[in-house]
Simulated assay, not measured.
Amino acid sequence: MTPPLQTFDLIAYLHHHETFSEKTFGPGHHTKELLAHLHKEIRELEATPLDLDEWLDVALLALDGALRAGFAPEDIARALTAKQTLNENATWPDWRTAADGSTRF
């Protein structure tokens, strides 16, 4: 049995991912390739929206793209926290009255 995850160090993970990605896929931005892969993963996610692996494929590609765009792991973690704060302070439509399929996120 796998022990429960106590904490997760996003910055350490991003440093590890950056090393793996460059070693595996080479250096450079690879924006066109990343976007093509994201489009593929989004189509797969549309087909299987309850598949955690598909959600993670999208998240990992987005993080890889941010690293390849030159953002340091610390910058990504800081921006992620700031973006969450911004979202929490924004005014959002009431989900209870939003029409199905409407933009509520």
Score class of each variant (00 low, 15 high):
residue 8 F to S: 03
residue 83 K to W: 00
residue 68 R to A: 00
residue 41 E to M: 02
residue 31 T to A: 11
residue 73 P to Q: 00
residue 39 H to K: 12
residue 54 E to L: 05
residue 93 P to K: 04
residue 35 L to F: 13
residue 66 A to Q: 04
residue 79 A to D: 09
residue 101 G to V: 05
residue 90 A to Y: 14
residue 5 L to Q: 12
residue 74 E to R: 06
residue 46 E to N: 13
residue 86 L to Q: 12
residue 99 A to P: 15
residue 81 T to A: 14
residue 37 H to M: 10
residue 73 P to L: 00
residue 89 N to Y: 07
residue 103 T to E: 10
residue 96 R to T: 15
residue 65 G to C: 01
residue 28 G to S: 06
residue 41 E to I: 01
residue 42 I to P: 04
residue 8 F to G: 01
residue 41 E to F: 00
residue 101 G to Y: 01
residue 17 H to N: 13
residue 24 T to I: 08
residue 31 T to S: 11
residue 7 T to A: 07
residue 29 H to R: 11
residue 16 H to T: 15
residue 64 D to A: 04
residue 94 D to K: 01
residue 52 L to M: 12
residue 8 F to H: 06
residue 40 K to F: 11
residue 46 E to K: 08
residue 8 F to P: 03
residue 102 S to V: 03
residue 5 L to G: 11
residue 68 R to K: 03
residue 35 L to R: 12
residue 87 N to C: 05
residue 5 L to P: 15
residue 49 P to F: 00
residue 56 L to Y: 09
residue 8 F to R: 04
residue 34 L to F: 09
residue 39 H to Y: 11
residue 7 T to H: 08
residue 50 L to R: 08
residue 59 A to T: 13
residue 93 P to C: 06
residue 84 Q to K: 12
residue 24 T to Q: 12
residue 37 H to L: 13
residue 73 P to I: 02
residue 64 D to S: 06
residue 21 S to M: 07
residue 75 D to P: 01
residue 42 I to W: 04
